[in-house]
Amino acid sequence: MKARTIQLLQFTGMFWAIPFVRLFSGEEILVQLRQIWTSIGLPVMAIAGFLLTWHLVAQRVNTSLGRLPGPMEVTQQAQVLWQEHLTERAKANDFYARQDARIAKIKAANPNAKPRRVAFTGKPTYLDQILTSLKTVFVGFIFASILALPIGIICGANKNIMTALNPIIQVLKPVSPLAWLPIVTMVVSAVYTTNNGLVPKSFIISAVTVAMCSLWATLINTAVGVASVNKDYLNVAQVLQLSARQRTFKVILPATLPMIFTGLRITLGVGWMVLIAAEMMAQNPGLGKFIWDEFQNGSSTSIARIMVAVLTIGMIGYALDRLMAALQQKVSFA
């Protein structure tokens, strides 16, 4: 039980929690307490210091929207956003309850009637926006992987193709999402012309922009990984005369997986960073648009709400990175 819990914590990278498990199972208490102090006490002190500095500095900065919000105001706005979410959900539930009641009444009067159902059209709450952002970055990440993995494998397997494509890759790699966005917008608008498609245009524009900016890490890592597969493994494949397919799927890809996951991890990180800018400009209803709208709104609480978003973005980014790190550890064989 204890061993399993520790294993799980190690797998998810939550090393700081391990001493607690040991402590509660009665292992050398002093050693564990010291462990807890170094692994949790120090970061907690640093966070406290950071909050205090923030609080003191913020008081001295006067913006056109009033004093710069400190940690208190931001916490308060986080609660407000949560309340707004609850209220909005309650409204939606009320709406559907009333609609159900009305439909039931119509059906009772006339069993053949086919009353129309309408969806609730309230504004998206903060949680909806987080969800939209996650969906967008996920789709962008998939686009990036679909493009980068095969090209990376081909580049890694064939030196000439790598040499040919390298300049293009190196030039496109450092381009900012803000530069891509207008082009992506025009192209998507030209290609994706239906107005009632499965997903809104802004969603696709944001996702494609995320993909354009983030695919390079996966592409390059995959190519380098494939090109540097241990010669011993390739010798084995040669001696056994594995077919090209078997060589790729049984030897080269498994050997490259750790590198591929390093690339995917960077891609997801970059994608999440780029997403906010893309959403701001493409007006995709996610966190980026939330920040933009609050900025345009310019009320006395706007900056605090933006800071809530900043912290949310940071925490989600951290969580995504941990997730990828765990997967990376899972596939590494070294």
Binding site: Y233, N235, V236, V251, P254, A255, L257, A334
Partner: peptide, 13 residues
């Protein structure tokens, strides 16, 4: 021709 290499050359995964 079965080869036994100096390093075991197994596929570690």
């Amino acid at each position: 021709r079965g080869v036994i290499f100096q390093s075991p050359s197994l596929l570690p995964w």
